[in-house]
Write a protein that binds this DNA or RNA. Sequence first.
DNA 1: CTCGATGCAAAAGGTTTGCATTGAG
DNA 2: CTCAATGCAAACCTTTTGCATCGAG
Lengths: 135, 135
Amino acid sequence: MAVTKKHSKKRDAILREMLATTRHPGAQWVHERLKARIPDLSLGTVYRNIGLFVQEGLLRPLGVINGEERFDAHVEPHPHRVCISCGRIEDVPCPNEALLKRLHGKNAGGPGGFQIDFRKTVFYGVCPHCSDQGT
Amino acid sequence: MAVTKKHSKKRDAILREMLATTRHPGAQWVHERLKARIPDLSLGTVYRNIGLFVQEGLLRPLGVINGEERFDAHVEPHPHRVCISCGRIEDVPCPNEALLKRLHGKNAGGPGGFQIDFRKTVFYGVCPHCSDQGT
DNA sequence: CTCGATGCAAAAGGTTTGCATTGAG
DNA sequence: CTCAATGCAAACCTTTTGCATCGAG
Protein backbone atom coordinates (compact mmCIF):
# COMPACT_ATOMS: atom_id res chain seq x y z
CA MET A 1 0.00 0.00 0.00
CA ALA A 2 1.11 3.48 -0.79
CA VAL A 3 2.37 5.89 1.81
CA THR A 4 1.14 8.81 -0.22
CA LYS A 5 -2.47 9.82 0.08
CA LYS A 6 -3.07 12.76 -2.19
CA HIS A 7 -1.91 13.84 -5.56
CA SER A 8 0.30 16.86 -6.14
CA LYS A 9 1.96 18.47 -9.09
CA LYS A 10 5.13 19.19 -7.20
CA ARG A 11 5.43 15.62 -6.00
CA ASP A 12 5.03 14.39 -9.54
CA ALA A 13 7.62 16.82 -10.81
CA ILE A 14 10.15 15.69 -8.20
CA LEU A 15 9.74 12.03 -9.03
CA ARG A 16 9.77 12.61 -12.77
CA GLU A 17 12.92 14.67 -12.52
CA MET A 18 14.65 11.90 -10.64
CA LEU A 19 13.44 9.21 -13.00
CA ALA A 20 14.55 11.19 -16.02
CA THR A 21 18.20 11.49 -15.10
CA THR A 22 21.05 9.05 -14.78
CA ARG A 23 22.96 11.34 -12.44
CA HIS A 24 21.85 9.64 -9.23
CA PRO A 25 20.90 13.01 -7.82
CA GLY A 26 20.74 14.36 -4.31
CA ALA A 27 17.94 16.48 -2.91
CA GLN A 28 19.77 19.74 -3.50
CA TRP A 29 20.29 19.03 -7.18
CA VAL A 30 16.64 18.15 -7.70
CA HIS A 31 15.54 21.30 -5.94
CA GLU A 32 17.88 23.54 -7.87
CA ARG A 33 16.88 21.91 -11.13
CA LEU A 34 13.16 22.30 -10.54
CA LYS A 35 13.30 25.84 -9.21
CA ALA A 36 13.60 27.05 -12.78
CA ARG A 37 10.24 25.57 -13.64
CA ILE A 38 8.62 25.76 -10.19
CA PRO A 39 9.99 28.88 -8.47
CA ASP A 40 8.04 28.36 -5.25
CA LEU A 41 9.27 24.83 -4.65
CA SER A 42 10.85 24.53 -1.24
CA LEU A 43 13.78 22.34 -0.34
CA GLY A 44 11.84 20.86 2.53
CA THR A 45 9.24 19.53 0.14
CA VAL A 46 11.91 17.87 -1.94
CA TYR A 47 13.32 16.16 1.14
CA ARG A 48 9.88 15.11 2.38
CA ASN A 49 8.89 13.63 -0.96
CA ILE A 50 12.15 11.85 -1.53
CA GLY A 51 11.65 10.27 1.87
CA LEU A 52 8.22 9.05 0.82
CA PHE A 53 9.49 7.70 -2.47
CA VAL A 54 12.14 5.74 -0.66
CA GLN A 55 9.53 4.25 1.68
CA GLU A 56 7.41 3.31 -1.31
CA GLY A 57 10.38 1.67 -2.95
CA LEU A 58 10.34 4.03 -5.92
CA LEU A 59 13.76 5.34 -5.03
CA ARG A 60 16.79 3.70 -3.50
CA PRO A 61 19.25 5.60 -1.32
CA LEU A 62 22.78 5.03 -2.56
CA GLY A 63 24.74 6.44 0.34
CA VAL A 64 26.39 9.70 1.25
CA ILE A 65 28.84 11.11 -1.30
CA ASN A 66 30.61 14.32 -0.31
CA GLY A 67 28.23 14.83 2.56
CA GLU A 68 25.09 14.48 0.48
CA GLU A 69 22.76 11.49 0.22
CA ARG A 70 22.30 10.37 -3.37
CA PHE A 71 19.45 8.36 -4.85
CA ASP A 72 18.82 5.96 -7.69
CA ALA A 73 15.51 5.69 -9.50
CA HIS A 74 16.54 2.36 -10.96
CA VAL A 75 15.70 0.22 -8.00
CA GLU A 76 16.83 -3.19 -9.15
CA PRO A 77 19.98 -3.85 -7.12
CA HIS A 78 23.11 -3.19 -9.11
CA PRO A 79 26.61 -1.92 -8.40
CA HIS A 80 27.76 1.65 -8.93
CA ARG A 81 30.98 3.45 -9.50
CA VAL A 82 31.72 6.76 -7.85
CA CYS A 83 34.26 9.35 -8.89
CA ILE A 84 36.18 10.30 -5.78
CA SER A 85 37.11 13.57 -7.42
CA CYS A 86 33.81 15.03 -8.62
CA GLY A 87 31.26 12.75 -6.98
CA ARG A 88 29.82 11.51 -10.26
CA ILE A 89 27.91 8.24 -9.87
CA GLU A 90 27.32 5.79 -12.69
CA ASP A 91 25.67 2.43 -12.92
CA VAL A 92 28.18 -0.29 -13.58
CA PRO A 93 27.38 -1.69 -17.00
CA CYS A 94 27.94 -5.42 -16.90
CA PRO A 95 30.09 -6.21 -13.89
CA ASN A 96 30.89 -9.89 -13.77
CA GLU A 97 27.19 -10.45 -13.59
CA ALA A 98 27.39 -14.11 -12.85
CA LEU A 99 29.76 -13.61 -9.98
CA LEU A 100 27.66 -10.90 -8.39
CA LYS A 101 24.59 -13.06 -8.54
CA ARG A 102 26.34 -15.75 -6.56
CA LEU A 103 26.99 -13.20 -3.86
CA HIS A 104 23.34 -12.36 -3.54
CA GLY A 105 22.16 -15.27 -1.43
CA LYS A 106 20.70 -14.83 2.04
CA ASN A 107 23.87 -16.25 3.51
CA ALA A 108 26.22 -14.09 1.55
CA GLY A 109 26.97 -12.12 4.68
CA GLY A 110 28.55 -15.12 6.24
CA PRO A 111 27.71 -16.84 9.50
CA GLY A 112 26.87 -15.02 12.69
CA GLY A 113 23.12 -14.62 12.61
CA PHE A 114 22.76 -11.52 10.46
CA GLN A 115 19.66 -11.65 8.31
CA ILE A 116 20.96 -10.06 5.14
CA ASP A 117 18.39 -7.95 3.33
CA PHE A 118 20.40 -6.38 0.57
CA ARG A 119 23.89 -5.65 -0.54
CA LYS A 120 25.66 -2.60 -1.89
CA THR A 121 28.74 -2.75 -4.02
CA VAL A 122 30.49 0.45 -4.97
CA PHE A 123 33.63 0.95 -7.00
CA TYR A 124 35.57 4.11 -6.27
CA GLY A 125 37.86 5.71 -8.76
CA VAL A 126 38.43 8.69 -11.01
CA CYS A 127 36.12 9.31 -13.93
CA PRO A 128 37.47 10.12 -17.42
CA HIS A 129 36.62 13.79 -17.15
CA CYS A 130 38.49 14.22 -13.88
CA SER A 131 41.54 12.24 -14.96
CA ASP A 132 41.79 14.50 -18.04
CA GLN A 133 42.04 17.48 -15.72
CA GLY A 134 45.23 15.97 -14.37
CA THR A 135 43.61 16.27 -10.94
CA MET B 1 56.11 10.59 4.55
CA ALA B 2 54.00 11.11 7.57
CA VAL B 3 51.43 13.84 7.82
CA THR B 4 51.93 14.05 11.55
CA LYS B 5 54.83 16.05 12.85
CA LYS B 6 54.78 15.94 16.62
CA HIS B 7 53.97 13.41 19.24
CA SER B 8 50.98 13.75 21.54
CA LYS B 9 49.38 11.67 24.23
CA LYS B 10 45.88 12.47 23.11
CA ARG B 11 46.63 11.52 19.55
CA ASP B 12 48.03 8.22 20.72
CA ALA B 13 45.02 7.56 22.89
CA ILE B 14 42.63 8.19 20.01
CA LEU B 15 44.41 5.83 17.68
CA ARG B 16 44.84 3.15 20.33
CA GLU B 17 41.18 3.33 21.22
CA MET B 18 40.20 2.82 17.61
CA LEU B 19 42.65 0.00 17.09
CA ALA B 20 41.48 -1.77 20.22
CA THR B 21 37.83 -2.12 19.25
CA THR B 22 35.96 -4.07 16.59
CA ARG B 23 33.00 -1.70 16.69
CA HIS B 24 34.07 0.35 13.68
CA PRO B 25 33.54 3.50 15.69
CA GLY B 26 32.61 7.04 14.73
CA ALA B 27 34.22 10.16 16.10
CA GLN B 28 31.53 10.73 18.71
CA TRP B 29 31.93 7.27 20.20
CA VAL B 30 35.71 7.65 20.46
CA HIS B 31 35.33 11.01 22.12
CA GLU B 32 32.73 9.83 24.59
CA ARG B 33 34.77 6.77 25.40
CA LEU B 34 37.98 8.70 26.04
CA LYS B 35 36.40 11.51 28.01
CA ALA B 36 36.34 9.20 31.02
CA ARG B 37 40.10 8.90 30.97
CA ILE B 38 40.91 12.27 29.40
CA PRO B 39 38.29 14.75 30.61
CA ASP B 40 39.69 17.70 28.67
CA LEU B 41 39.68 15.96 25.30
CA SER B 42 37.75 17.99 22.77
CA LEU B 43 35.64 16.58 19.99
CA GLY B 44 37.44 18.77 17.49
CA THR B 45 40.70 17.07 18.32
CA VAL B 46 39.17 13.66 17.74
CA TYR B 47 37.95 14.76 14.32
CA ARG B 48 41.25 16.36 13.42
CA ASN B 49 43.25 13.31 14.37
CA ILE B 50 40.95 10.85 12.70
CA GLY B 51 41.36 12.93 9.57
CA LEU B 52 45.11 12.62 9.86
CA PHE B 53 44.98 8.89 10.48
CA VAL B 54 42.88 8.43 7.37
CA GLN B 55 45.42 10.41 5.32
CA GLU B 56 48.21 8.28 6.71
CA GLY B 57 46.31 5.14 5.83
CA LEU B 58 46.05 4.00 9.43
CA LEU B 59 42.29 4.20 9.31
CA ARG B 60 39.78 3.56 6.56
CA PRO B 61 36.49 5.44 6.34
CA LEU B 62 33.65 2.96 5.97
CA GLY B 63 30.86 5.31 5.03
CA VAL B 64 28.06 7.15 6.77
CA ILE B 65 25.75 5.03 8.93
CA ASN B 66 22.85 6.87 10.55
CA GLY B 67 24.37 10.19 9.73
CA GLU B 68 27.77 9.43 11.21
CA GLU B 69 30.98 8.47 9.44
CA ARG B 70 32.41 5.20 10.75
CA PHE B 71 35.98 3.98 10.55
CA ASP B 72 37.86 0.72 10.43
CA ALA B 73 41.33 0.25 11.87
CA HIS B 74 41.77 -2.94 9.90
CA VAL B 75 42.76 -1.39 6.63
CA GLU B 76 43.06 -4.43 4.39
CA PRO B 77 40.01 -4.20 2.12
CA HIS B 78 37.22 -6.51 3.23
CA PRO B 79 33.43 -6.48 3.20
CA HIS B 80 31.25 -5.46 6.12
CA ARG B 81 27.76 -6.08 7.31
CA VAL B 82 25.68 -3.34 8.83
CA CYS B 83 22.62 -3.69 11.03
CA ILE B 84 19.98 -1.39 9.60
CA SER B 85 18.31 -1.32 12.99
CA CYS B 86 21.09 -0.41 15.45
CA GLY B 87 23.94 0.56 13.14
CA ARG B 88 26.25 -2.20 14.33
CA ILE B 89 29.05 -2.91 11.87
CA GLU B 90 30.91 -6.18 11.68
CA ASP B 91 33.61 -7.53 9.46
CA VAL B 92 32.31 -10.28 7.23
CA PRO B 93 34.11 -13.48 8.23
CA CYS B 94 34.78 -15.43 5.06
CA PRO B 95 32.48 -14.19 2.36
CA ASN B 96 32.90 -16.23 -0.78
CA GLU B 97 36.48 -15.16 -0.71
CA ALA B 98 37.40 -16.53 -4.07
CA LEU B 99 34.52 -14.78 -5.77
CA LEU B 100 35.27 -11.44 -4.19
CA LYS B 101 38.88 -11.63 -5.29
CA ARG B 102 37.82 -12.01 -8.88
CA LEU B 103 35.91 -8.77 -8.55
CA HIS B 104 38.96 -6.87 -7.43
CA GLY B 105 40.70 -6.33 -10.74
CA LYS B 106 41.33 -2.88 -12.15
CA ASN B 107 38.62 -3.43 -14.72
CA ALA B 108 36.08 -4.72 -12.29
CA GLY B 109 34.17 -1.48 -12.61
CA GLY B 110 33.41 -2.28 -16.20
CA PRO B 111 34.20 -0.29 -19.32
CA GLY B 112 33.82 3.46 -19.58
CA GLY B 113 37.19 4.85 -18.57
CA PHE B 114 36.85 4.87 -14.79
CA GLN B 115 40.15 4.13 -13.09
CA ILE B 116 38.99 1.99 -10.20
CA ASP B 117 40.98 2.54 -7.02
CA PHE B 118 39.09 0.46 -4.52
CA ARG B 119 35.81 -1.24 -3.90
CA LYS B 120 33.41 -1.35 -0.99
CA THR B 121 30.97 -4.16 -0.40
CA VAL B 122 28.44 -3.85 2.39
CA PHE B 123 25.72 -6.28 3.40
CA TYR B 124 22.73 -4.72 5.12
CA GLY B 125 20.48 -6.65 7.42
CA VAL B 126 19.35 -7.11 10.99
CA CYS B 127 21.78 -8.33 13.63
CA PRO B 128 20.87 -11.13 16.06
CA HIS B 129 20.38 -8.75 18.97
CA CYS B 130 17.93 -6.57 17.06
CA SER B 131 15.96 -9.46 15.58
CA ASP B 132 15.50 -10.81 19.10
CA GLN B 133 13.85 -7.55 20.04
CA GLY B 134 11.16 -8.44 17.55
CA THR B 135 11.53 -4.95 16.07
C1' DC C 1 62.06 29.23 21.76
C1' DT C 2 59.30 27.55 17.83
C1' DC C 3 55.75 25.57 15.73
C1' DG C 4 52.55 21.82 15.89
C1' DA C 5 48.54 20.18 18.81
C1' DT C 6 44.53 21.37 21.43
C1' DG C 7 40.21 23.63 23.53
C1' DC C 8 36.56 26.34 22.71
C1' DA C 9 33.10 28.19 20.35
C1' DA C 10 31.34 29.68 16.15
C1' DA C 11 30.33 28.37 11.50
C1' DA C 12 29.09 25.38 7.89
C1' DG C 13 26.30 22.05 5.44
C1' DG C 14 22.75 18.79 4.86
C1' DT C 15 18.49 17.20 6.70
C1' DT C 16 14.43 17.39 9.75
C1' DT C 17 10.56 19.50 11.95
C1' DG C 18 6.77 22.71 13.75
C1' DC C 19 3.29 25.52 12.36
C1' DA C 20 0.30 28.27 9.62
C1' DT C 21 -1.36 28.24 4.89
C1' DT C 22 -2.62 26.17 0.52
C1' DG C 23 -4.84 22.89 -2.33
C1' DA C 24 -6.63 18.18 -3.79
C1' DG C 25 -10.66 15.23 -3.41
C1' DC D 1 -15.22 21.02 4.09
C1' DT D 2 -11.30 18.09 5.53
C1' DC D 3 -6.98 16.70 5.82
C1' DA D 4 -2.82 16.00 3.16
C1' DA D 5 0.88 18.82 0.96
C1' DT D 6 3.67 22.83 1.07
C1' DG D 7 6.53 27.13 2.37
C1' DC D 8 9.17 29.07 5.65
C1' DA D 9 12.22 29.29 9.12
C1' DA D 10 14.03 27.41 13.12
C1' DA D 11 16.08 23.37 14.96
C1' DC D 12 19.29 19.47 14.70
C1' DC D 13 23.58 16.96 14.08
C1' DT D 14 27.76 16.00 12.45
C1' DT D 15 31.88 17.91 10.90
C1' DT D 16 34.95 21.90 10.01
C1' DT D 17 37.42 26.01 11.17
C1' DG D 18 39.51 30.30 13.37
C1' DC D 19 42.04 31.78 17.03
C1' DA D 20 44.32 32.02 21.40
C1' DT D 21 46.74 28.87 24.39
C1' DC D 22 49.39 24.80 25.51
C1' DG D 23 53.09 21.60 24.99
C1' DA D 24 56.64 18.61 22.51
C1' DG D 25 61.27 18.82 20.75
